[in-house]
Structure formats: structure tokens, C-alpha cells
Amino acid sequence: MTGTERGTQPILTGDRVRLRPWRPDDAAVVLAACQDTDIQRWTQVPLPYAAEHAEGFVGGIAPQTWDEGGALFAVEPADGGPLIGSMGLFPPRDGVGEAGYWTAPEGRGQGFTAEGLRVLADWALDVVGVHRVELLVDPANAGSRRVAERAGFVAEGTIRQRFLFRGQPSDVVLYARLAGDPRPPTAR
């Protein structure tokens, strides 16, 4: 199914966050955020991260992900304000979607990412129709593990050397939310 057949990518809202499609004018914010050492440490953003990477992300990768059945969203406060981060559902396969996210330094520690992940997972389970949403988290990434748990994801175990990160086999903790799991309360 293409993006045209799926219609326009929606805007998803929570109590405190809004997830909206990326726009070309977001590239400067993405460029600045992806200079952060934690984003570079825990995600697969290119290193060094340059303007052409940010432009390609908002102008090419995000629309292509929608066309392929997933969705990448800019995360911003629901009441307005600067972008907080990125939240995405990679194109699902066999009823399973994988989520991923990053948060700019100024948006961390306030519950925005956990709420955004809860909103994304609810949409994936209720609207997209997957039966399972997964996250692969580095075992040492305590912040991301807290976000997953606050968004209702359950740690299912460590998978050894499951992920190739910057050319090195790495362990991950597999988190998941199922369609039949109890819904978490608003993550704050």
C-alpha cells in the first residue's frame, strides 16, 4: 500500500504532546538535535551528522516511511513550543511494528517522550492494526528503558548480539506492547 492509498499522515495528540508529520523547515532543528552526544550514542544517526542528513530525513526518509506503511513524526508540546524529538513506527511486518525515538536534550526528563510513545503505540495497535509494537533498547540506556516502561511496554528479555550498532554486534533488551495488554495511564 502506498502513502496515496493510505491518505495523509495523521497528527496524533496526547494530553501534553502532539505528533505531526515532519516538514522541510524542521531540518535545522533536526540538525541541531542530532549533534547531541546522547542521540549519537543511542541511535543510528550518521556521524558526523550534517545538514544534508537532516534534510534527507525530513524530506525523504519520513515521507518514504509513510509510503512503505510506517510513520515518522515530529514531537512537540501540545500547547505549542519547539520540537522535542522524533517518534516513529517502522513499516510493520506480519502484524508487528517496531518503534523508535530520540529526544532533544531540552525535552528530556519531563514525560513527553513516554507520552509520545504511548500515543504512537495506541495508534499503531488501534488504527494501523498491528497486534504487537516492539522496541529494541541498549541495556545500558536507562533513560530509554524508563520511557518504554512508562509507556506500558514490557521487557521480554535481553537478546545477545541481536543488533549491529556502528559495525559492532550489540545486545538489546526487547520491549513490547500487545494489543490485548492493559493500557497504561497517561505517562507523566
Rank of each mutant, 00 (worst) to 15 (best):
I39C: 09
A187V: 01
F73C: 07
R162N: 05
S144N: 10
F73M: 05
A124Q: 07
L136F: 08
D122K: 07
P82Y: 01
W22V: 08
V75P: 02
G97E: 12
R118L: 14
R118A: 15
S86T: 15
Y101P: 10
T8E: 14
Y101V: 13
Q161C: 03
T158S: 07
E55I: 02
D67E: 14
V172Y: 00
R118H: 14
I11D: 06
L19C: 04
G109E: 13
E98G: 08
T186W: 00
G97C: 14
G7R: 03
C34I: 13
D122I: 12
E156I: 07
E55H: 08
P82T: 09
W123E: 09
E115N: 12
A140W: 06
Y175F: 15
G143Y: 05
P24M: 14
E76R: 06
L89R: 11
G152P: 00
T13H: 13
A62Y: 10
L117S: 08
P48K: 06
D126C: 00
A32S: 12
V96F: 09
D36R: 01
D138F: 13
R146Y: 04
V45E: 06
P10V: 09
Y49A: 03
P63S: 12
A27T: 10
V45G: 01
A114L: 11
V58A: 04
C34H: 13
L117G: 07
A99N: 10
P10K: 04
A32F: 02
W66K: 07
P169Y: 01
L135E: 05
E5W: 03
A114S: 15
A121W: 07
P105T: 09
F57R: 05
G88F: 03
A140P: 00
D15L: 12
I84C: 00
A71E: 03
G167P: 04
